[in-house]
Amino acid sequence: MKILRTTYLSLGSNQGAKLKILQEAINLIAEKIGTISKISSVYKTASWGFKSDDFYNICIVLSTNLNPEDLLSTIHKIEASLGRTPNLSSEYKARTIDIDILLFDDEIIFSKDLNVPHKEMLNRKFVLIPLAEIAPNVLHPIKKQRIKLLVKDCKDTNEIEKTTLKLIRPIPISEKYNYIAIEGNIGAGKTTLVNMIAEDFNAKKVLERFADNPFLPKFYKDNERYAFPLEMSFLADRYQQLTDDLAQFDLFKNFIVSDYYIFKSLIFAQVTLQKEEYFLYRKMFDIMYKEITKPDLYIYLYQNTPRLLENIKNRGRDYEQNIASEYLDKIHNGYNTFIKTEKKLNTLIIDVSDKDFLKNPEDYAAILKTINNCDY
Rank of each mutant, 00 (worst) to 15 (best):
R5H: 15
T7D: 03
S10V: 00
S10I: 00
G12H: 02
Q15W: 00
G16D: 13
Q23F: 05
A25P: 08
A30D: 14
K32H: 08
T35W: 04
T35N: 13
K38E: 12
V42R: 06
V42A: 06
T45P: 01
S47M: 03
W48Q: 12
F50W: 09
K51L: 11
Y56L: 14
N57G: 08
I60Y: 08
I60Q: 08
L62E: 02
L66W: 11
L66D: 03
N67T: 02
P68S: 10
D70P: 00
D70Y: 09
L72P: 07
I78S: 10
T85Q: 14
S89Q: 10
S89P: 04
S90Q: 14
E91I: 02
T96N: 14
T96A: 07
I97R: 10
I99Y: 10
D106K: 12
F110G: 03
K112N: 15
K112G: 11
N115D: 09
N115Q: 13
V116K: 13
P117K: 06
K119P: 04
M121E: 09
L131A: 12
A132W: 10
E133S: 09
E133C: 09
A135K: 08
P136Q: 13
V138K: 15
R146I: 00
R146K: 15
I147N: 02
K148Y: 03
L149M: 07
L149Y: 15
L149S: 10
L150A: 07
L150P: 11
E161W: 13
T164Y: 11
K166H: 11
K166R: 15
I171N: 07
I173G: 03
G184C: 03
N185E: 04
G187D: 01
N195H: 09
N195V: 01
M196G: 01
E199G: 01
D200K: 14
D200C: 00
F201P: 05
K205Y: 09
D212H: 13
F215V: 08
L216G: 12
P217L: 08
P217Y: 07
D222C: 07
D222M: 12
N223R: 15
Y226M: 10
P229V: 08
L230S: 05
L230P: 01
M232F: 04
M232C: 10
A236C: 06
D250C: 01
F252H: 15
F252Q: 12
K253D: 08
K253C: 10
Y260L: 03
Y261S: 04
I262L: 12
K264F: 00
K264N: 14
S265M: 04
L266N: 11
I267P: 02
I267H: 11
F268C: 05
A269L: 04
A269S: 05
Q270H: 13
L273G: 12
Q274Y: 07
E277F: 04
E277A: 14
L280M: 09
M284I: 12
M288G: 06
M288N: 13
D296T: 12
Y300R: 12
L301N: 04
N314E: 10
N314A: 11
G316N: 14
R317W: 01
E320V: 05
N322C: 05
I323Y: 01
I323D: 01
Y327Q: 08
L328A: 10
G334T: 09
Y335R: 09
E342L: 02
N346G: 03
V352S: 07
S353E: 11
F357Y: 07
L358I: 04
K359E: 07
K359W: 01
P361K: 13
D363P: 06
A365P: 00
A366D: 14
A366Y: 05
T370F: 00
T370H: 04
N373W: 01
N373P: 04
